[in-house]
Each structure stands twice: as C-alpha cells, then as structure tokens.
Amino acid sequence: MNGLQLALVVVSLVSLVTAPFWSNFIIVQTFTLASIWAIFAMSWDIQSGYTGYISFGHSALSGAAAYTTAMLLYNVGDLPFMATAPVSVLVTLVVGLAIALPSLRLSGPYFSLITFVAVLIFYRLIRPFSDYTGGETGLQSVEVFTYDPIPRFYYMVIPMLVIAVALLFIARSNIGLVFTAIRENESAVEAAGLNATKFKLWSFVISAIPMGIGGVLLAHYSGGVDPNAFVVVDNSIEMIAMAVVGGMSSILGPLGGAFLFLSLDRIILTELPTRLRWILIWVFVLLVLVFARDGLLRKLWHGLDRLGGDRR
C-alpha cells in the first residue's frame, strides 16, 4: 500500500464513520442500509469471488437468519437480542451447510443452479408454514434497535467494519490463498495434496456466518420480515452486482460497491421513476462488466498503485 492508497482508505473510513455529522438524513439512512448490504456483498465475495463458484443462493442465508429472529420473537416470546442473534446465525450456518454439501462436488452452472433452486425452495416453504412464518405478509415481530438515525447508523456500520476486517484477514491468510488457487486451477490444488472440496466447504461456512449477522441486522433494521424482501433471488443478484461494481475477490471492493449501488438507487437517481431508475442502475452494472471487469474500485486502486508506486 503506497501513500495514495493509504490516503484513500483513511479518507473513506473517516468520511464513513463521521457521515452523521456532515451529511443529511437521506445520506445517513442510505449509508445505514448500505452497511448491511456491504456485509452481504463481502460475504458472497469470500465464497464466490475467491473460489470462483458463483452462488445465486445467498439470499437464502440472509433470509434464514432474518426469519429465525422474527419467528423466535413471534412464536416463542420477547427474547433478548443476545439470545436470538446467536441462534439465527447458527441456523444460517446449518442452511449454508445444507446447500453446500450436495452442491460443492459440482462445478460451473450445476453448482450455481443448485444454489438458485435452494432459494426457490426456501421461498416456496414459507407459505405452507404460514402459521409460523406469516406467509406472504411476513412477520412484523422484530423490534427496531432505535429510530434515532445516528445510533441506528452506528449499530449497522460498526459490525460491518468488524466483519470487513475479519474477512480481509481470512482473505489474506493461507486459507484465502487456497480459495484463490481453487478459482485459478482446482486440479493443481488437488495435485498439491489439498482437498479442494473441504476448502470450498470452508468458504461456504465462512461466508454463512457474516450472512447470518447481516440477516439479523436487516430484520432489526426493517422491524420484520417478508418473503418478497428477504428471500427472493433478486437479493442474491444485487449482492453479485455490488461485488462486480466494486471488484470481486477483494473484500473491500464489494464493500465499496454496496455503498455505490445504494447511493445510485437512493441518492443520485432517486428523483427518477422507479422503473427508469432500475434500468439505469442495471445498465451501469452492465457497462462495468464490459469496460471494467475488475470493478471500478479495484481499477481505482490499481491506478493509485501506478501513480504512487516506487519508480526507481
């Protein structure tokens, strides 16, 4: 990291944590929600971006955590957050393993198809168990942490930053190196005596834990759950789009991509009609895929590396 890159990180971090003191209500609300989606995008990235096994089923993981929290509060009673949150994350981990175990021996479109089907199954199971899940209308049983925008902002930003540091540490460790090697040449990993399937399973486990945390936070942000907002495949697609815009297999890229994606939707293009706004957002994502395949933030990072690098 050279001086320019360090300056970018410091300025971005300071700007984020001080946002309530220099911005307006809309920006604070957008950054609050973007912090949760940044957790989702980074969690997807550590599994799919690093290993190359593209998952369309991560909304099932966040949905499992959110629904577990809501169902516990609705069906059991007024439980404390410190009781519901660990259970919700544990359920997310179990759901992640249920998806991963039958799918990780496959590759390419077959793996992606199974993860896609997992979301559809989850969605279809909500209605038959409507006595517990609330069916199509969902459950409004989750207490919002606070409606005060400043504390609410920090309730979401602080866990996001902690998760970002943890995932960065994992990504830069030997485990992250093996994940990347699986993406580049899985046969070579097997030839080196490493069990690629075991490491792919670990990637799903590592991804499921922060996905569960993000799902719990989103439930407490929204005050409830419903299938159309928490489980649909669209959520998985948006996580992927955020990672693509920022730069896959970088952790910080998807983090920045989430903030950029939500800022486009809720700040920059907010005055446009909903359909036109989303058309423009997805055209933007498509342009990034065509002209900046490594992601905008990764492109910026490499540009700063060239500008501030050692020129001896």
Rank of each mutant, 00 (worst) to 15 (best):
S203T: 02
A70Q: 00
S130Y: 13
Y123V: 09
L217W: 05
W202L: 15
V9K: 10
A229C: 09
L61C: 06
L93H: 01
G257M: 03
F81I: 14
F21W: 13
G138M: 11
I46Y: 01
R306F: 00
L286P: 01
R311I: 07
T115F: 01
P159Y: 12
W278V: 13
G108F: 07
D226L: 13
V283T: 10
D234I: 12
Q5I: 06
D265N: 14
V17E: 01
A208Q: 04
I209D: 04
G295A: 02
I126L: 15
R172H: 11
L287C: 13
A243K: 00
A208F: 02
D265R: 14
P20T: 02
S107V: 10
H58T: 04
F230D: 13
K299H: 14
V165C: 13
E238P: 00
L120R: 08
V89W: 01
M242I: 12
L260F: 12
I240K: 03
V76D: 10
A219I: 05
E136S: 14
L260Q: 07
F261P: 05
T69C: 13
K200L: 06
V189R: 04
A41M: 06
A118Y: 07
L260D: 03
L90V: 10
G49K: 01
L90A: 15
H302W: 06
S203Y: 02
E136P: 11
R152C: 02
S187Q: 15
D226P: 05
P80S: 14
M211E: 05
F179M: 02
L255T: 07
I170S: 11
L262W: 07
P254L: 10
N185A: 15
P151F: 11
G308E: 05
R306Y: 09
G135H: 14
G77T: 13
V283G: 01
M1Q: 08
I240T: 08
F284M: 05
N185I: 04
P128L: 13
A181L: 07
S130L: 09
V91P: 01
F284L: 03
A192S: 15
G246F: 06
G138H: 11
D131M: 13
R266S: 13
V290T: 09
T84E: 03
V283H: 03
K198D: 06
G214A: 10
V232R: 10
A188I: 12
N174W: 12
T115N: 05
L13M: 09
L79K: 09
G309H: 05
V244D: 00
I114W: 03
T146P: 12
T180F: 12
F116Y: 12
H302E: 13
G176T: 02
I240Q: 04
T180N: 12
